[in-house]
C-alpha cells in the first residue's frame, strides 16, 4: 500500500495575515498622531470637497481639510476606544464570571442579577448614563464602552467555566484541597481562554462602533477631533456629493475590525494544544 501524502492547502495563516494588517494600521495611526501630510485641522476653503487624487489621497471635506490626514490623526482615538474598552471588559468581566461560576449561591446570584440589570439597558443608553452627567473625554468614553461589555464577558466566562468545573481534573484539584484561586487560575482559565479571545476580537469591533456612535451623539471626542465615527457622522450630510468623506474612515474601520478578528481567530487556533501535533501515539 503506497502512502500518498495529502496535498496541503497553502493558505496564509489568519494570524499572520491579520497580524500584518493590524500592525500596519496601528503603526499608521501612531505615526499620524505626530506627523501627517497636511494639518488635519487647517481649513482650505478653496479646496473643499475635492475627490481623491494624487494630491489628496482620500479627498478633502467641506472645509477643505485633507481626509487622509484626518483619518491618520484620528485613528488613535478609535484604537484606544476599542482596545482600552476591551481591557476594561476583560479585567472586570473575566474575574466576575469565574467567581460567579465557582461560588454558587449568594455570590453568583448577586453577580448575575447585576449583570441582568446591565444587559436590560440598551448599550447606548448605558453609555449615555455614564457620560451624560460629566463632561466628555476620551478616557471616560473608554470606561463607558468597556463597562457596557462587561456583562457579556461575565456571562460567557461563567458559561465556559461552569462546564469546565465539572471536569475530573478540577475534581482532582478539589481533592487536593485547593481553593478558588488556584483552581480558577491554573485549571479553568487556561481552558477558558479560546472562546474569550474570540469574543474579545468581536468586542473590540463593537466597542469601536459604540465609541463612534457615542461621539456621533456628542458624548465622545468633540470636533475638530477626527475620531473615525465622528468623521462618518460629519460626512453623512455629503453622502451624495462626496461619498469619500464616509468611505475613507469607514473602510479603515472595516480593515481594522477584520484584522482584529483574524488575529483573534488565529490566536484561538494557535493556543489549542491539539494543534501541536500528536506525538508518540502508542
Amino acid at each position: 500500500m503506497t502512502a500518498i501524502a495529502l496535498p496541503r492547502l497553502r493558505t496564509p495563516s489568519p494570524l499572520l495575515l491579520g497580524g500584518i494588517v493590524l500592525a500596519v494600521v496601528v503603526a499608521a495611526c501612531l505615526v499620524g498622531t505626530v506627523v501627517t501630510p497636511y494639518d488635519p485641522t487647517a481649513f482650505a476653503v478653496r479646496a473643499r470637497l475635492q475627490p481623491p487624487s494624487a494630491l489628496h489621497l482620500f479627498g478633502t471635506d467641506e472645509f477643505g481639510r485633507d481626509v487622509f490626514s484626518r483619518v491618520l490623526a484620528g485613528g488613535y482615538l478609535s484604537l484606544a476606544t476599542g482596545f482600552g474598552a476591551m481591557v476594561i471588559s476583560l479585567a472586570l468581566g473575566v474575574p466576575l464570571g469565574l467567581l460567579a461560576a465557582f461560588h454558587k449561591g449568594v455570590v453568583q446570584e448577586a453577580i448575575m442579577r447585576g449583570v441582568d440589570l446591565m444587559i436590560s439597558l440598551p448599550p447606548i443608553l448605558l453609555g449615555l448614563l455614564i457620560l451624560a452627567v460629566t463632561p466628555p473625554g476620551l478616557l471616560k468614553t473608554i470606561a463607558a464602552v468597556g463597562l457596557v461589555y462587561v456583562p457579556i464577558l461575565v456571562r460567557l466566562t461563567r458559561a465556559v467555566a461552569l462546564g469546565l468545573l465539572e471536569e475530573e481534573f478540577v475534581q482532582a484539584a478539589r481533592a487536593r484541597g485547593e481553593g478558588a484561586v488556584p483552581i480558577l487560575w491554573y485549571e479553568i482559565l487556561p481552558n477558558a481562554w479560546p472562546p474569550i479571545i474570540v469574543e474579545c476580537g468581536l468586542r473590540i469591533t463593537f466597542a469601536i462602533l459604540l465609541g463612534s456612535a457615542l461621539s456621533f451623539l456628542g458624548l465622545g471626542p468633540q470636533p475638530p477631533a477626527s475620531e473615525w465615527g465622528l468623521m462618518i457622522a460629519d460626512g453623512r450630510g455629503f453622502l451624495a456629493q462626496a461619498p469619500w468623506l464616509c468611505l475613507a474612515p469607514g473602510l479603515c474601520l472595516c480593515m481594522l475590525l477584520v484584522s482584529v478578528n483574524l488575529v483573534g481567530e488565529g490566536l484561538r487556533e494557535r493556543l489549542d494544544p491539539h494543534s501541536s501535533g500528536r506525538g508518540g501515539h502508542a
Binding site: 471536569e167 475530573e168 481534573f169 475534581q171 482532582a172 491554573y186 485549571e187 487556561p190 481552558n191 494544544p273 491539539h274
Partner: peptide
Amino acid sequence: FQNPDTSLNPRQ
C-alpha cells in the same frame, strides 16, 4: 478517575 480523557487538564 474513570475517564482518562477528562481527568487530565488538556493544557498542561
